[in-house]
């Protein structure tokens, strides 16, 4: 039961060696591993926290963007509706204008058609009247229409008012002694002579005559001397007839347009 001092010294040395060994192989690696793991866990926690914050930020950003998108969508929809309304109004107005223009054009065309018809009708009537008159005159008076027209013309010449006659004479005298006689038909030499005598009587002098055919005159005769003109034709008698026909046609046209507008409304 005594202390063996060599053993004591040996055990002290052994103990110091053991301290070094355990420090080297036990405490240091274990504590380092613990630190590393702790650091790793802390890093992961921090990372998770960061990711959470990031996710929150992303979510907020997404919500904000979504709200903006909704607002933009709403605005665009409103704009689109407004634009569509405006476009609709514009198109309707354009369509109305087009319809009006078309209507006007249609009216113009109708009017032109009416005018053409009237013109044609007028000419037909004139021709008919001419032929009817010619035939009636020929049947009734046993003389042809030309002769009657010439006689009528000569009557008118002699029935000229004083002032008119003077004007004619003066204008005749102021230029060349030449009279142009135009008629709708070829005048027979007897009739030509008759006219020559009548004019010569009117002017009181022998004159040079020039006879020409002008179908437009329709059973009429026209004399021209230095720009002064004297004329007679059936046209005058037809005027009243044309006027009546014209009025009748206008009435008809009016009733047609009235009916159309009623049907539209």
């Amino acid at each position: 039961m005594k202390i063996d001092w060599f053993t004591v010294i040996a055990q002290v040395i052994n103990f110091i060696i053991l301290v070094w060994l355990l420090k080297r192989f036990l405490y240091k690696p274990i504590l380092n591993a613990l630190d590393a793991r702790e650091k790793k866990i802390n890093d992961q926690l921090a990372d998770a926290e960061n990711k959470k914050a990031e996710a929150k930020f992303e979510r907020d950003e997404f919500i904000r963007k979504n709200e903006n998108f909704d607002a933009d969508k709403q605005q665009l929809m409103e704009e689109a509706v407004t634009e569509t309304k405006a476009e609709r109004e514009r198109l309707l107005k354009e369509a109305r204008n087009d319809a009006d223009a078309l209507k006007k054009k249609q009216l113009a065309t109708l009017k032109e058609l009416q005018n053409n018809l009237i013109e044609e009708f007028e000419q037909n009537v004139q021709r008919e009247v001419f032929s009817v008159s010619k035939k009636v005159l020929a049947d009734i008076a046993s003389i042809n229409l030309e002769e009657q027209a010439v006689n009528n013309f000569i009557e008118q010449l002699s029935a000229l008012k004083e002032t008119e006659r003077n004007q004619f004479i003066q204008s005749f005298k102021s230029g060349e002694n030449h009279v142009l006689v135009q008629s709708a038909f070829n005048l027979a030499p007897a009739l030509q002579h008759k006219i020559e005598i009548a004019i010569d009587n009117l002017l009181g002098t022998a004159t040079a005559f020039d006879f020409k055919v002008k179908p437009d005159l329709i059973a009429g005769i026209e004399i021209t001397a230095n720009g002064y003109k004297l004329a007679w034709s059936i046209s005058e008698y037809l005027d009243s007839l044309i006027k009546n026909v014209d009025e009748t046609e206008s009435e008809k046209l009016k009733s047609i347009t009235k009916k159309e507008s009623n049907a539209k409304s």
Partner: peptide, 24 residues
């Protein structure tokens, strides 16, 4: 005996800590 105990402790520590993992 002390040497034996030292050997056991040191070897056991070395055996376990040579493949230390720093993972979770």
């Amino acid at each position: 005996t002390t040497w034996a105990i030292m050997l056991v402790l040191a070897v056991a520590s070395w055996m376990i800590t040579k493949n230390l993992k720093k993972d979770l």
